[in-house]
């Protein structure tokens, strides 16, 4: 029986990456216990998970977006915008439930705007979301200025740092898990998810196959906006306050977690399982650093370094693979593709 060489190899590579990540996670735990004896305590683990939830929530649609070959850098600002809106509602005495609904509405609209400009303006998502990053943050600043708003009701704050009765499992983690399952099923088991992978690999062929690429991309950007609103709810609940600069820079850990999880930055491949492990690694690395006395601003270095290192590793392995001609990913191998076209024509 002829061996399914590259397919099996590709899969083993992937499997190897997630397994490798698991080892990294274990190593993180080992290091964490070394840093502080409080690391493995249930309360600390609970805090670590709760703190990561906003990033994790956004990582879900971000995975979809990156799989299709796009990117959304405006997520931090969308969270900030929704948070500021809800804060202003609270100030004005609007009931919190209505404020939450408005927050979700604004998030959806923000995501929709991103999607519309990318799809119908024909502009690269990179450029559009850099612009909307500033725009949404600016609007947040306009409506909330420099005020900080607190005074969220207790049950609301419970979402952020409350735990399930009798256990130390944070409510926010439960929320995350529910959405994680939903997104995983969406990406890996539905036809919509399959279409996203197809788009990320070969947009033209997907278009020829009767799939509406425009609608798909619009959809993932809207999803990003909606989940940003949800993250805003969880984040403000966790912080028990909202400011216009809430979630500034959130895009960095989100993209890092997704890339760390093995999702190809150029699109077309990656798994939710990998992203989950990536999120966990990042969460516990940050937690351990915090226990070691490193401030969040300082932790940026690590996050940035992880992003860069992961990309270096993938980039280097791609170079190696191409020189050894083990795999031919058409996205990178445009020259190979051109060659193949030549063979076809001549």
């Amino acid at each position: 029986m002829s061996s399914n060489k590259t397919g099996a190899q590709l899969r083993t590579v992937l499997a190897r990456w997630e397994v490798f990540l698991l080892f990294v996670l274990i190593a993180t735990f080992v290091w964490g216990t070394h840093v502080s004896r409080y690391f493995l305590t249930p309360s600390n683990l609970s805090i670590a998970l709760a703190g990561m939830t906003p990033v994790a929530i956004i990582a879900l649609p971000m995975t979809l977006i990156i799989v299709t070959g796009e990117i959304d850098i405006s997520v931090g600002s969308m969270v900030g915008l929704c948070a500021s809106l809800m804060a202003v509602c609270l100030e004005r005495g609007i009931p919190i439930e209505v404020a939450m609904f408005l927050g979700v509405l604004v998030g959806t609209l923000a995501g929709l705007l991103n999607g519309l400009i990318v799809v119908y303006g024909g502009l690269p998502s990179l450029v559009v979301t850099i612009g909307t990053l500033a725009l949404y943050r600016g609007v947040a600043q306009i409506i909330l200025n420099e005020r900080g708003v607190s005074g969220f009701p207790d049950w609301y704050q419970n979402i952020g740092f409350g735990t399930v009765d009798g256990t130390l499992i944070p409510w926010s983690s439960v929320i995350f898990v529910i959405f994680f399952v939903g997104f995983t099923i969406f990406l890996h088991a539905t036809h919509w998810g399959r279409a996203l992978y197809a788009i990320g690999n070969n947009r033209e062929a997907t278009r020829f196959s009767g799939i509406s690429v425009h609608r798909a991309i619009l959809g993932v950007f809207i999803a990003s906006g909606v989940m940003a609103a949800l993250a805003a709810i969880i984040l403000t609940a966790y912080l028990a306050s909202a400011r216009s600069d809430t979630a500034t820079g959130l895009e960095l850990p989100v993209i890092t977690a997704v890339v760390l999880g093995g999702v190809n930055i150029f699109g077309g491949s990656g798994t939710m399982a990998g992203v989950l492990i990536g999120l966990l690694v990042l969460a516990f690395v940050q937690n351990a650093l915090g226990l070691a006395g490193v401030t969040p601003e300082e932790q940026q270095i690590v996050t940035g370094a992880v992003l860069v290192l992961t990309l270096i590793v993938f980039g280097a392995s791609d170079i190696v693979n191409r020189t050894l001609k083990r795999t031919r990913t058409p996205l990178r191998a445009d020259r190979d593709h051109a060659e193949a076209r030549v063979h076809a024509h001549d």
């Binding site: 960095l252 270095i301 940035g304």
Partner: peptide, 20 residues
């Protein structure tokens, strides 16, 4: 050398340098 797209490369270094 590593062919990392400039957008994510400088996103990463932005964090590294600022943190640094």
């Amino acid at each position: 050398v590593f062919r990392i797209p400039a957008i994510v490369a400088t996103l990463g270094t932005l964090a590294m340098y600022r943190g640094g």
